[in-house]
Nucleic acid binder design. Structure first.
Lengths: 338, 338
DNA sequence: TACGTAACCGGTAACGGTACCGGAAATATC
DNA sequence: GATATTTCCGGTACCGTTACCGGTTACGTA
């Protein structure tokens, strides 16, 4: 039981040629129903399993799609689940690799994938990634790539991303509607795409509501919780302290929350807080925290869908799909009850 | 730039045979240093990339290891990260698939992996999985498998699991040390391995401390938060209500916490609570919740390590590695201060 | 009857490598 | 100087499958 049956075995068994077996197995039209049936029967009997490696080697594509993500946190892993969903549906196998936010890892992964002939790449680039030659190699081989979550500049490829500006806008606008007037933003690192986009939304909302922008209310800091904690602590010390904070990630919101509590301020009365991503834990905190929710699953599905389209029709247009987030309002920012 | 260079191309270029090129590329001893160098140079120049598919096809193994997990939650995804770590180190590529806790998906995934000739399987089975033929197929083909996280009965293979009994023990013992005497357990579904093991630890701790077991304090319910909430609600109504609860997952602990708060009880004074897994959010709740922490990363690394060992030395012994969890004590159970 | 046309099937090359065998040249051994 | 031994390299079969090119056979049509 160690050796796997091949089409040769079943050909021998029936005294037909391997070509006939090959055709019968893929239900080609030029095989009689009789032989087709007997071939199928013998295949069943011998527990024949096609050797995908041999097929892939022959036909030069593998029906597997490479997926590279910086990590598998809540957001990314549900996006991957979305990719998985439609890929499986369409008969593709998904190969997931994590770059761990490391450029080196990402390059290694792309190289391995290229060598094993994945049919293309769906990628959310690492934060370290500044050059894109490793990705361009896919294009040189005419393999489709689609970027999601984080967009890839310099590369002409479909993108599936969140409308980050809109996310920043609805979060800020909501705070304004709740009567907050001196709203700070804990933005991410400067020059980072999503960070700036979310901040643009913030600025737009302020402008639309005729609120002036106070530079002191715009804080750039790392995504992590501790930075946000210290930044908030500083922010709350100032004489004209903000009465609301919008953070562009939930982790940062947590940091801000801790600083707020330490300062003895109450949410939402003294100060409002809105995060980004809507991680499940937010509804467990006291107070529960408002957040902007991404359609993660849909983003994943969309990315895979577009990928498969491009795989089939050589020159489908290169689009960038922008999905809208929704605001989940909870206690931390709900000051007005109607 | 569309076609990839092959050893044939570089052989032609140098007027040597493809065998020589093949040998030179893998640094075989019977090629002179001179030709080796020139071959390497030309390979570089032509951007030669070995076709892994061709190699795998020829040598009948792929240097990729299949990993199947029920999902990619906090625990599992860091275990996968551990697997990734050592696999990459050892030159293996990892192929991760999620079964979504579905038996059908799991079977599909194993089948695809078998067809694409992964070198073996590292698996945490889905909760639906009751039959194991799809896994046995790997063994029939002499492919190593190792089970982790959830053990696989009926299959003779190395296991890497947590010492769940010990986990239950330290959690319960800690509660006892803190002066709690009437300790309930929210166990998982009956007949589930990890559930029973953790409960055994609970029972052992009670026995060692000469506390009698009250059957009403043992609740079997689903892993999810809502069940735990309702179960706890019932539990707290009884006249002789427990003064501490140990839940075998953090999700359940959350459910219990909500019920406790609703009832107006204070942790840790009125009632103690300990969860399992130590998900990051626990330290953000009020009160912060104690929990048993798994060495997730280590479990993943260990699984991969054992896997690779078995891959290389045909008959290394079949062990089951049992890693110890540690207890993280937080506010929800810390009643005695020294 | 003869011929054209489907319908069906077989033979074979090829995909990119590896492994094995064997041979020639260079070197060592006596 | 003849033989034995390395050292280095080429030839070739082969892995499992598909694609392509033909060749039979059977059947319909004139």
């Amino acid at each position: 039981m160690k050796k796997q049956a091949t089409i040769k075995d079943i050909a021998k068994r029936l005294n037909v040629s391997i070509s006939t077996v090959s055709r019968a197995l893929k239900n080609a039209p030029d095989v009689s129903n009789g032989t087709k049936a007997s071939i199928l029967a013998v295949a069943e009997e011998l527990h024949y399993q096609p050797n995908r490696l041999a097929v892939s080697f022959r036909v030069k594509h593998t029906n597997t799609i490479g997926v590279i993500v910086p990590n598998l946190d809540y957001v990314l892993s549900t996006m991957v689940k979305g990719i998985d969903e439609v890929a499986l549906e369409a008969g593709y196998t998904v190969m997931v690799c994590q770059s761990n936010e490391s450029f080196g890892r990402e390059v290694l992964n792309t190289s391995r994938m290229l060598q094993s002939l994945v049919d293309g790449l769906i990628i959310s680039v690492s934060s370290e990634t500044k050059t894109f030659d490793h990705i361009k190699k896919f294009q040189e081989r005419d393999l489709p790539i689609v970027a999601f979550d984080r967009i890839v500049p310099e590369i002409i490829a479909p993108n599936v991303i969140l409308d980050n500006e809109y996310g920043g806008y609805i979060a800020t606008d909501h705070l304004i509607q709740q009567g907050y007037r001196n709203i700070a933003i804990l933005a991410g690192p400067k020059n980072l795409g999503i960070s700036n986009a979310r901040m643009d939304g913030y600025l737009k909302a302020l402008k639309e509501n005729n609120l002036k922008v106070d530079p002191k209310n715009i804080i750039h800091c790392d995504f992590n919780q501790d930075y946000a904690y210290f930044a908030t602590k500083e922010l709350l010390k100032s004489k004209n302290r903000p009465d609301a904070i919008f953070t562009i990630s939930d982790r940062m919101a947590i940091g801000a929350m801790i600083a707020i509590k330490e300062r003895g301020l109450k949410m939402p009365t003294d100060i409002g807080l809105v995060g980004f991503n809507n991680e499940p834990m937010l509804s467990l905190l006291t107070p529960t925290i408002s957040s902007v929710e991404q359609p993660m699953f849909e983003i994943g599905k969309m990315a895979a869908k577009i990928f498969i389209e491009r795989l089939h029709s050589e020159e489908s247009p290169i689009t960038t799909e922008v999905l809208k987030p929704t605001l989940i309002i909870r206690e931390s920012s709900k000051r007005i009850f109607i």
